[in-house]
Simulated assay, not measured.
Amino acid sequence: MDVSGLSHAFGPRQALRDVGFSLAPGDFTVLLGLNGAGKTTLFALVTRLYHSRQGRIAVFGHDIRRQPSAALAAMGVVFQQPTLDLDLTVRQNLAYHASLHGLSGSRARLRIEEELERVGLADRRDTRVRQLSGGQRRRVELARALVHDPALLLLDEPTVGLDIESRRFLIDHVRHLCRSRDMAVLWATHLIDEADDTAKVIVLHQGQVLDQGPVPQVAARAGVPTLRAAFDTLTHQHQGTRQHQGGAAR
């Protein structure tokens, strides 16, 4: 996935400014930013919920403007807000998603069973979603996003509201997908501890990318030992620069 020169505004408010980054197969990349940094806006542009007017988004060779169907077919998405139909069963939710992606009946049944088995919910396939816990619903959303075997997986604040066990399962499972299926993952979060030293990170603050790369390199460039300290340093420097520019303008 390649993003370059991506900007977006809501009226006078600039939500994203000249954002650019690349994801390769097998990358686990954490999009790290405070609430309001622009993470959800970025996901909305990548998934075509919003139309980008400035910049380019390509999903493994498919330009999101010129080839939207191919680009969207190559990605799976777990949105921050729940999107399951609570009155359908687990299997029905996944089957509907599979049909949208053109999977045949036999192929859909196979893929649904495979993904439910991987997230430990094969025995709940015929349970209505409203009867599941929050952590189980999140697992269903992840299984649904993977049914059509995408090359890119996007997750927007996927652990919000989950207990420790559910959160750990989700992180471990997605990291395993990167290794075992060579899948590219963009994991958006405001929780710094979800990016360990083996991950790549994109620090997004007030709509701008402040730094990106392997976690140890980002920390080293900031001159500090940890990602938490690097995040604090980068965001404080950015805030100071904006205040200085505002003062100069006045």
Rank of each mutant, 00 (worst) to 15 (best):
R124L: 12
E114C: 05
H97G: 00
R109H: 13
G134V: 02
L86H: 13
E113I: 06
D126F: 13
L84F: 06
V119W: 04
N93W: 04
L84N: 01
L103W: 02
I112L: 11
S99E: 12
I112E: 00
L100D: 03
L110Q: 05
L84T: 09
F79T: 11
Q92N: 05
V129M: 03
R118W: 09
T83P: 01
L103S: 02
D87I: 09
R130L: 05
T89H: 08
Q80R: 15
R125E: 08
L88T: 03
L86N: 09
L121F: 10
A108F: 06
Q92I: 02
H101T: 08
L100P: 00
I112R: 00
E113Q: 12
P82T: 12
Y96V: 14
Q131P: 01
S106K: 09
R118V: 07
Q80P: 10
H97L: 05
E113R: 11
Q131V: 06
H101S: 08
Q92A: 14
S106H: 08
L86S: 10
R130A: 10
G105I: 07
T89N: 04
G102I: 04
T127D: 12
H97T: 11
S104G: 15
I112Y: 02
S133T: 12
L86K: 13
S99D: 11
S106C: 01
Q92G: 02
D87M: 12
T83W: 02
D123C: 04
S133A: 05
I112F: 04
H97R: 13
L100N: 02
F79D: 01
Q81I: 04
E115D: 05
Q81N: 11
S133Y: 09
G135S: 05
G120R: 06
G120Y: 04
S104E: 11
V119M: 10
R128Y: 04
H101V: 03
E117I: 01
L121T: 00
L94N: 00
L88Y: 07
R109P: 01
Q80V: 15
N93A: 06
R91W: 15
R128D: 02
A108R: 03
G120P: 03
G102M: 04
V90C: 11
V119I: 15
S106R: 14
V129D: 00
D85Q: 07
L100M: 06
G102C: 08
E115H: 13
A95N: 10
R111Y: 09
